[in-house]
Design a binder for these strands. Structure first.
Ligand SMILES: [Mn+2]
Ligand SMILES: [Mn+2]
Ligand SMILES: [Zn+2]
Ligand SMILES: [Zn+2]
Lengths: 134, 134
DNA sequence: TTGCAAAACGATAATCTTTCTTGTTTATAT
DNA sequence: ATATAAACAAGAAAGATTATCGTTTTGCAA
């Protein structure tokens, strides 16, 4: 990821310093909650309004620049939308990480079993990360 | 499911008409949002407080009588906790259904790849149900 | 460049949603 | 039956999200 201006333009959203700042932070940290993002962006834009943040998050999710990740027992995190992938959450240190898995067979099975035609999935695995296992 | 009294006692929660009513509704409809449950239970307990509902939901989730299902782009639903299973959501009629899949191999792969030890997962598949395909 | 219209911004009010508080009632064990 | 702890209803409080509105900025075209 790099050229946030281009990304915004491609999705017919105007390029504003606030949006560029948001994207740059989200891209840098990978996954972030609303309140973390607000705290973070205030360092650069001390007068940014929480309403602006919500509105920008929502419009960027709508045009699929961003994606919301819902997680049991914690607040939603947002990430820059990239190729489909799953997530892992460590129950001890609470970090969230990407995980690239091939779910083709699983989804095919699901389709056979149910008759549904699937085009999207959300998988979150919970457990203990390698560091916290020691 | 049947004996809600026993279930509550087994989890050291007092048996109250409100709780029995909640469990009976949830069990009957399978999956339900807070507001649906509130609307529903008010038919039987016209004076039940929304605070009671929230507190009971929370304590029953805590002792694992209930489980929260987080779903992208919609409100959380609650169900009676049973053996682990996945969920399917139809993007057209918006219904949510259970789906029993074996994820053992997938999770084993994930473990090998990441070093995590997993003991819980949440999988939601999104697509079009058989009825809506016609 | 400059000027215009639409979109985005900040401030703040309004609207949910969820939790907390308090006085009263109820469930359960003795 | 009585005592005690838990649960209840009602409403206040807190937290999260959205709506409103006057001002500023952006993108585009003259
Ligand atoms: Mn991710
Ligand atoms: Mn289910
Ligand atoms: Zn960890
Ligand atoms: Zn359907």
């Amino acid at each position: 990821m790099k050229n946030y201006e281009l990304i915004l333009k491609e999705h017919s959203l105007k390029v504003t310093p606030q949006r560029l700042g948001m994207l740059s932070i989200i891209d840098y940290v990978g996954h972030i909650t609303i309140e973390e993002l607000f705290a973070n962006i205030r360092k650069d834009f001390c007068s940014i309004s929480i309403a602006t943040l919500y509105k920008n998050i929502n419009s960027m999710v709508e045009v699929k620049i961003l994606k919301e990740i819902k997680i049991s027992n914690s607040k939603s995190k947002y990430e820059i939308l990239k190729n489909e992938h799953s997530h892992m959450v460590c129950k001890k240190c609470e970090k969230l990480e990407d995980l690239n898995l091939c779910l083709d067979i699983t989804i095919e099975n699901a389709s056979k079993k149910s008759g549904y035609i699937f085009d999207e999935n959300a998988l979150v695995l919970f457990g203990i990360c390698p560091e916290c296992q020691r």
